[in-house]
Design a protein around this nucleic acid. Structure first.
Lengths: 226, 226
DNA sequence: CCGACGCTTCGGTCGCGGCCGAAGCATGCC
DNA sequence: GGCATGCTTCGGCCGCGACCGAAGCGTCGG
């Protein structure tokens, strides 16, 4: 039983530390230049160039040339999801030792996961949306309720459901070990949180930093008791 | 940004052709001996032994010693899912060349995916269950309806929802490229299909072979128009 | 037009890891 | 006990691929 489309081609790409580090750096969702990725992975530019070419050929990255720079980004959300999936296997496997996820408290509190909110804040937000009846949890599968659609409209999230991307999707949070909200709704909420000035991305990291009044508003909006 | 629980440890395990072939052989869901896996991968017993030890240490396989045999099986459904996920990336990436999935028509028609039905028959079954109102499709996330629970009872599927495994779960079919049904319900339905004599596993393969009368019953039960 | 800068290509070195032959253990059958 | 069978351990060979230095090619700025 050979697997038709070779699974090893992809897995081997992810299996090299240097490449994995570059991909991890791109989990933030924004494109980075070849040089930045080289520094991120701790290798020279020419080595990185080779790796990046392979990742592009493997369909995991997309390249955008701009002047004398090559910008790279993940080829799609599914790449990020596959990586999270592997992380899930990885820390179930070596299930002893340290606590899961990043040490940095700020990262555990609120971070971006590709394009949606993760960490304590992300998990709390999903909990609240379910408690408020805005999202229904069917055996771990999430669906937006009618009430939830109304909330999205009020809150200013445009739900473009023409694409094939699901509106709501549970994404296992690898620090908290519970689900947070991905999908169109998850991405839209984070965009609004930025737009309302409740929080902002810390440059060059995945940390999402809430302002003091922003946090109050966030907690009021996403309170477990409506 | 280092990924805490090392993703490369797992990916590197999956990235070696010999190991991937052994894992693929175990996708059928049943345990195989070390020797069988060695033959499957086309390597000698001693090489296989080394690989299997690594896969066990990595938490991807579980070993059960029985007499002078070592039986290996996938450590869990999540391992199978991660592999399917990677297959998905793999054939989106090299999206040219051949048609996706296995060449063997029997495999495309009906096969087992770990413990549930996949292939044309699996996809058709899920389509029917949705059309019949027994499963609800919320933005690609599946949930069993009350009517569906009644059907499960009549059909003879015991729904043990005490475990953490979801009742219904969409699993992307890598030959048809549409979803079929996984989860407790998916596994239970396949068991009943076997028990009713509608179909049986072809020894040593993932092919599910329907009998002539069994196929009629299957198509009548899972007809798109109730 | 020239130098600075960033990315890529080329060649060569080196180490990790897969692989097998041979030997070592355990189990099961006679 | 003696032998066959199946798995595992050990040791050594070998090739693939990561890595870097140096050089080549494009773009940007003066």
């Amino acid at each position: 039983m050979r697997l038709g489309p070779d699974i090893t081609r992809i897995a081997a790409l992810l299996g090299e530390p240097a490449r994995a580090n570059m991909l991890a750096a791109l989990l933030g969702g924004e494109a980075l230049t070849a040089g930045e990725l080289a520094r991120e992975a701790g290798i020279t530019a020419q080595t990185a160039s080779g790796h990046l070419a392979k990742l592009e050929a493997g369909g995991l990255l997309v390249r955008r040339r701009q002047g004398r720079h090559s910008y790279f980004a993940l080829a799609g959300e599914d790449v990020a999801e596959a990586m999270e999936q592997l992380v899930g296997l990885a820390d179930r496997a070596g299930h002893q030792r340290t606590q899961p996820g990043p040490k940095d408290p700020a990262l555990r509190k609120a971070r971006v996961c590709y394009d949606h909110l993760a960490g304590d804040a992300g998990v709390a937000m999903l909990d609240a949306l379910i408690a408020q009846g805005r999202i229904a949890d069917h055996d771990g599968a999430l669906a937006l309720t009618d009430q939830g659609r109304g909330f999205a409209r009020e809150f200013g999230v445009a739900l473009d459901d023409r694409g094939r991307r699901p509106l709501c999707k549970a994404c296992l949070d690898w620090s908290v070990r519970r689900s947070h909200l991905a999908g169109v709704m998850g991405a839209g909420l984070l965009q609004r949180i930025y737009a309302l000035g409740w929080a902002r991305r810390i440059e060059g990291t995945r940390v999402v930093q809430f302002s003091a009044p922003g946090l109050v508003s966030f907690e009021r909006t996403f309170a477990r008791i409506p």
